[in-house]
Design a protein around this nucleic acid. Sequence first.
DNA 1: CTTCCACAGGAAGGTCTGGCGG
DNA 2: CCGCCAGACCTTCCTGTGGAAG
Length: 402
Amino acid sequence: MLWVGMKQKTLEDLFDSFLSKQSFFISKQALQDTYTPDTVPHRNEQINQLAAILAPGLRGDRPSNVFIYGKTGTGKTLVSKFVCQELESKAIKQNTSLKTLYMNCKMEKINTPYRLLARFLSFIDIEVPPTGLPTDEIYKIFLREINKVGGVFTLVLDEIDTLVETDVLYNLTRINTELTNAKISIIGISNDLNFTNNLDPRIKSSLSEEELVFPPYNAIQIQDILLDRAKIALSPTSIGEGTIAKCSALAAQEHGDVRRALDLLRVACEIAERNVDIKVNEEHVDEAMRKIDIDRVVEIVKTQPRQSQIVLYSIIYLKELNKNEVATGEVFEVYHNLCKQIGLVPLTQRRVSDLISELDMLGVINSLVVSKGRYGRTRKIKLDMTPVALEKTSEILRGELL
DNA sequence: CTTCCACAGGAAGGTCTGGCGG
DNA sequence: CCGCCAGACCTTCCTGTGGAAG
């Protein structure tokens, strides 16, 4: 698929033409989302607001807690990191004891008080075992050490949504009352705009003393940002007419997600480079779009535990019988038979129901609870992937399971 | 209007793994 | 080695419920 448009050549020809061509990339990192640019365009307002909220930390006062909302790729993480960096360097200059600490709750799997405290402690160079100790033991260590170090701490909790089920947030809001020598303020970042709706009102009012909303970027802004990055990342001769505009337009359609635009451009370049084409053009972007989608699905499917894979395969199996929308009961039945065939002990329907929810959250299926009146209440379950991705998934699962 | 289906999804608790300090 | 701990993963038991059928 990646070799679309390439005629049959000898390998020697291929290598020659590859070498004779300048690489598309000057610095690929600039298109990756780990990259932190020197400036953050179109986010001045948010930067200033956040800086104003955090500034009291420079006088040794505890800044208000902040809640930041905005969809993915709207610059929340970037702005937070940027402001924190500036704040810290200012603090160092004037010799204030102020530290900022960033953690991504989802990626670092910080979903229990224990882990949050452990992570915090490792930040001030105290290592504690990852498990084994009682939580209140860790808490005691935490209080002791944090008071020893002292000063103002600004804690950035990215993707704070993952903490909502647990009592982490509640404990966090109370932590300051136990501190004698240190002050902690919290920046919570969420891409779920309704996040605080189902939050305990006390936690809500405490955590969102201030709120910032990051609106999506529009197509022009995305293009602007993309051009900036492309200047750093790519050789100018390699970018075809309209390529950047197309990436921007597609990302703007999505929901103003810059990360998406950057991914599109980067993958499009990789495809073009592999094809030994001269420039990245709009077709490469289309191809990139497909590839990103497939890669996403494949990655999820592969890393799913066996039982979950069987559940997904059951849904695919039903789809192949031309049943587009299926109910939980049907899936469970197929799943049950499949387990027996493979020789695995099947899980209960209760558990399978949860697995279906998880697959829904991962975005490989779509499920909606509907009532069919007399015929009960169940989920309508649909696959949520492109035909190509579906084919690939089916292939992988068949390989893994049978 | 009531009934009643086919589940959703909460609560509590069990089992297992990996790790602790003594 | 022991008793204990956190956390992942499941089971059991349970109450709740939207709306077509009667």
